[in-house]
């Protein structure tokens, strides 16, 4: 295969840069979803235990929560004794509350998190009712509007990101199309000559379309390389972003970049070559 000519190289670089930027928007969208999910799943469900509950009741409750579907996978319920809670409160208030000589008004609590599938008002209410009925449980609390507020904000953020991604994809399409148009402008007479010597439109278009596929794949791979490189760098600088936490959406993102590069480049080449074929010889000047 001959080395790509300068205008081919220019198309590949332009295409790769636009796809890279598009990849960043995609990465941002996925990351925003991931962080929203993390935030939602950080909601603590607090189970207050009755004064005087037995050790056996507490162990049974914690075991029940650990094995339940509504417990966030991979997490274990936490236990905070009333004494530990009082000390923590004292630390917050910067006073030793034991010195007051009052009875500790707090209760022992068990806390746990639920996965995103259960973070709905109905599901949470059902979980609370279920736990409430267990022996030794005084009450179940969680911040009710926390879930709705985050879900609402996530929905709004999702719309904004979707619009932004759509707008960006449109701009990317136009930029790529313009680059292809400019690169094929020099070939317009060649295309017309090929038509005049008896070549069909399909025969003339074919090499351009194959070239478009090749360019799309190379540019897509370069863009993916850029996005992965940036992810590694960000992961070093800001490890809390956890950029490789969800491999499946990332695989979709990389596949999407490759597919989009291929598709936009292919369609642009098809449209431009057809346009030159449709033009009359005199209109090419």
């Amino acid at each position: 295969m001959p080395a790509p000519r300068p205008n081919q190289l220019y198309v590949i670089i332009s295409l790769a840069l636009v796809l890279f930027l598009l990849g960043l928007v995609g990465l941002w969208t996925f990351q925003a979803n991931y962080l929203t999910k993390q935030l939602q799943e950080s909601l603590d469900i607090i189970v207050e235990l009755e004064e005087g509950h037995t050790e056996a009741q507490r162990t049974e409750l914690i075991t029940g929560i650990t094995t339940a579907d509504f417990n966030k996978p991979g997490s274990r319920p936490g236990f905070i004794s009333k004494q530990a809670a009082l000390e923590a409160m004292g630390d917050d208030l910067q006073r030793d509350l034991n010195d007051l000589g009052l009875n500790n008004p707090l209760l022992d609590v068990v806390t746990f998190n639920v996965p995103i599938a259960y973070l709905q008002t109905d599901s949470l209410a059902a979980i609370a009712a279920n736990l409430q009925a267990k022996p030794g449980v005084a009450s179940v609390f969680y911040q009710e509007n926390f879930v709705d507020r985050i879900a609402d904000n996530a929905r709004r953020m999702g719309y904004v990101l979707l619009c932004l991604a759509g707008l960006f994809a449109l701009v990317a399409g136009l930029l790529i199309h313009n680059t292809v148009r400019l690169s094929l402008y020099a070939n317009r007479f060649t295309i017309k000559t090929q038509e005049l010597v008896g070549a069909s439109w399909g025969f003339i278009s074919r090499p351009y379309l194959w070239k478009a596929v090749g360019q799309g794949i190379i540019a897509g791979l370069l863009a993916i390389g850029g996005v992965v490189g940036l992810q590694f760098w960000l992961q070093t600088v800001l490890p809390e972003l956890n950029l490789f936490a969800e491999p499946l959406p990332l695989a979709y993102l990389y596949g999407g970049i490759l597919l989009l590069g291929l598709l936009i480049n292919f369609v642009s080449h098809y449209v431009v070559v057809r346009r030159y074929l449709r033009l009359r010889l005199d209109d090419l000047y």
Binding site: T193, Q194, V197, G198
Partner: peptide
């Protein structure tokens, strides 16, 4: 002349043969 300037004489001729 309208030759295909990006290829040799024989490739100009071969193009027509393949196209037809």
């Amino acid at each position: 002349f309208n030759l295909l300037m990006d290829r040799t004489v024989e490739d100009n001729l071969r193009f027509v043969l393949e196209a037809t």
